[in-house]
Write a protein that binds this DNA or RNA. Sequence first.
DNA 1: TTGTAAGCGTTATCAC
DNA 2: GTGATAACGCTTACAA
Lengths: 336, 336
Amino acid sequence: MKHITIKDVAKKLNVSISTVSRAFNNKYDIKEETKEKILKTAKELGYKPNPIAKKLSQQRSFTIGIIVPEFSNNFFPEVMLGAQEVLLKEGCQALIMQSNHSWEVEKKNVETLVNNMVDGLIISLTSESKNNAYYNDLIKQNIPIVFFNRTVDQIKASKVLFDDYKWAMFATEHLIVQGYKNITHLEGDKNLTLTKNRLRGFTDAHKKYKLTVGKVVPCGFKMEDGERVAQEMIDKSEVPRAIFAANDSSAVGAISVFKKNGYSIPKDIAIVGFTESNLAKHTTPTLTSVEQPTNDIGQTAAKLLLEQINTKGLFVPQTIVLNGRLNIRDSSVKII
Amino acid sequence: MKHITIKDVAKKLNVSISTVSRAFNNKYDIKEETKEKILKTAKELGYKPNPIAKKLSQQRSFTIGIIVPEFSNNFFPEVMLGAQEVLLKEGCQALIMQSNHSWEVEKKNVETLVNNMVDGLIISLTSESKNNAYYNDLIKQNIPIVFFNRTVDQIKASKVLFDDYKWAMFATEHLIVQGYKNITHLEGDKNLTLTKNRLRGFTDAHKKYKLTVGKVVPCGFKMEDGERVAQEMIDKSEVPRAIFAANDSSAVGAISVFKKNGYSIPKDIAIVGFTESNLAKHTTPTLTSVEQPTNDIGQTAAKLLLEQINTKGLFVPQTIVLNGRLNIRDSSVKII
DNA sequence: TTGTAAGCGTTATCAC
DNA sequence: GTGATAACGCTTACAA
């Protein structure tokens, strides 16, 4: 497969390659007439600028890297879609990699992307990642990075966050005001800021209503985590009256184990999820959940990153917090 | 951010850049001693080969592009994981793009990847794609492509397929042998081979048992499609006794509408899905579904592609058909 | 075994 | 306005 190059176009028209290059990059003076002529024959010849050569020459790739822990949950795909919308408008391309919940893979992905000269990175950390120093180093090397949702406080970079505290509080409150006592929180992966914030929302909701804070059970974000924890609760005969789960996946996992063991939702156990997934509307009962503005998160992260890239250095890290919504469904309503 | 280059290493050691290059590419003669010396100081200096320059110079990228219609369903992420496993072993990297069910986006993705000098492509077509000519052109240009699952007959390339016919037949048979009559098939997106094959399996299962073939309703692969079709059935009072759905998503969509309208599954309507999703085990009732060997599909596609890349030209397109499994769950059992 | 130099397809800095 | 030409970082004949 032979690529047509700028040279072929130049030769065909008896102009220099620099003229052809100029025709494709509006920033230089060039006679309108020759420009059109070049553009026309370039199209005829099927010329496509080679981005690789452009990258090498410009030391800039017009590509940004996106690293997410997983694709399986539909949260991340939706965020990426949002990011791609704004990147596309700026002529940037997204290079997507998944770290598959492993810090090693995440680090390797970062290196691959940096070596491939991405202009910047949009990252949501794996649950495991503890290497803030690594990222702070990268940032010191002037590699633009924006983090979203899964991040840690110690990293000094722009961030797009969801107010997990506030919405965890709302979610818990929703259970409390309906009169549920003995509410247990299934805690997400530790050492993520969002996990701490959701926990804080959970406890503060109790405090607000002057209730003793419910139990907190380490769980995780996967269905299997929810299944495991629910099974443990049943085995220990410590099944709570209501649950505020780490996320929808763990909630769904827990629900299925509870139901299998004869518990009825919400009659025996009320349950609220987090991070509205496409599951929520289709489980039985339908799942109450906090909806995050996925598309908006992606768009905001991309905008922030592009801004940072274009202002080279003299920018201040920003943290933008976005709003959500509590979708109340059958899994949490009080049956009288 | 200043990258350390081959030059820096060469200067430091007073050797030529070609020697340094050779030290990193074992194929040339080079004194073991100098090689080690170079590798050592390269590491000290923090030298990382620049893949962009390598691509430009070698006209080969050691990157393969993967294009899928979507990430939302967990079928495609699992396939990609499988592909990445084998690619990684060969020192290849995967560049993933989603076409978001649009032929225009798919075409643009292909162009982006080709321009970025991917060594080959692994593609699952969007439902819309009708442009076989486009792909046949690409193949004529010697761009290695392997298609998986979603493909059309007219494209002359290697393919990794699932025997949709066989497993659709098994799925339908499973309903028939339990005594269900009046079985309706929710048909997937038209003009995909797999849709035709599933339909053929559906009809042939009926023929095998000398039954009149059930109704076929055009549906699609999304939850909304299932919801829409179920609602139409209810509105027209044409609710069947059993359903073989296009896939799990459409099955789940249909189930939720039926349940909302007072139908009981499987008592009133038995239902079987296709392409085991993480939903199947967690719906109520749990969903009978055909499980596809996702990881294996990815691995096989990647192997086929690498083989094709390495044998440049003198290879024959292969079609590999993989096997699956019917997971029988509550949604399809006969209640006596 | 090592060095020299041309080339990969662009962009960018000079002249003219 | 346009054309040479030197980068960008690497590979790879060909010489030495």
